[in-house]
Computed example of a mutant assay.
Amino acid sequence: MTMKSLSLLAILSLLALTLPLAIASDPSPLQDFCVGVNTPADGVFVNGKFCKDPKLVSADDFFLAGLQNARAVANAVGSNVTAVNVNNLPGLNTLGISLVRIDYGVNGQNPPHTHPRATEILYVGHGTLFVGFVTSNGDGNRLFTKTLNMGDVFVFPEGLIHFQANVGRSPAVAFAALSSQNPGVVTIANTVFGSNPAIDPNVLARAFQLDPKLIMDLQAKF
Rank of each mutant, 00 (worst) to 15 (best):
T128V: 14
L21G: 14
N196C: 05
G66R: 10
P112G: 10
N202A: 12
I161A: 08
I188T: 13
T191Y: 06
F45K: 14
L19K: 12
V134N: 05
P171S: 04
L12W: 05
N190W: 01
A205W: 04
V167Q: 00
F156P: 12
T114F: 00
F193A: 10
S136I: 10
F62T: 05
T191L: 08
Q181H: 11
A22E: 15
H113L: 09
D103M: 11
A72R: 09
I215E: 06
M216H: 03
N190D: 09
I97F: 12
N110R: 12
G159H: 04
F130M: 06
L129T: 02
L19T: 15
R71D: 03
K4H: 09
K213W: 00
R101F: 03
P116I: 05
P157G: 03
R117A: 15
L148A: 12
R101A: 13
V124I: 13
A189L: 07
L204M: 03
L14R: 01
L148H: 10
D211A: 04
C51H: 00
I97P: 03
F193Q: 02
F50P: 02
A207R: 05
F156G: 13
A41S: 09
A189T: 12
S98A: 11
V106A: 04
V131L: 06
N75Q: 03
G138Y: 09
D42K: 11
K213P: 03
A16E: 07
G91H: 06
M216L: 12
V155K: 10
S170R: 13
M3L: 14
C34M: 07
S170C: 01
S5V: 07
A198Y: 05
K213G: 10
H162I: 01
G78F: 10
T128R: 12
E158P: 00
Q109N: 14
T39G: 00
P29Q: 07
A118I: 09
V185F: 00
N182G: 08
A65Q: 14
T2D: 14
A118D: 06
V84R: 05
N166H: 08
A174P: 02
L30K: 13
K146I: 02
I188E: 01
I161K: 02
L89H: 09
D200C: 09
F222L: 12
N149T: 11
V167C: 00
A177C: 12
E120Y: 07
L204C: 03
S136C: 09
N85V: 02
L129D: 00
N141M: 06
T94F: 06
P90R: 09
T82H: 10
A59C: 06
A172N: 00
L19R: 10
T39W: 01
N38Y: 02
I188S: 08
V100F: 05
L178V: 04
D217Q: 15
V100H: 04
G78S: 12
S98G: 06
N166A: 07
S180T: 06
Q31R: 14
V134H: 11
T18Y: 07
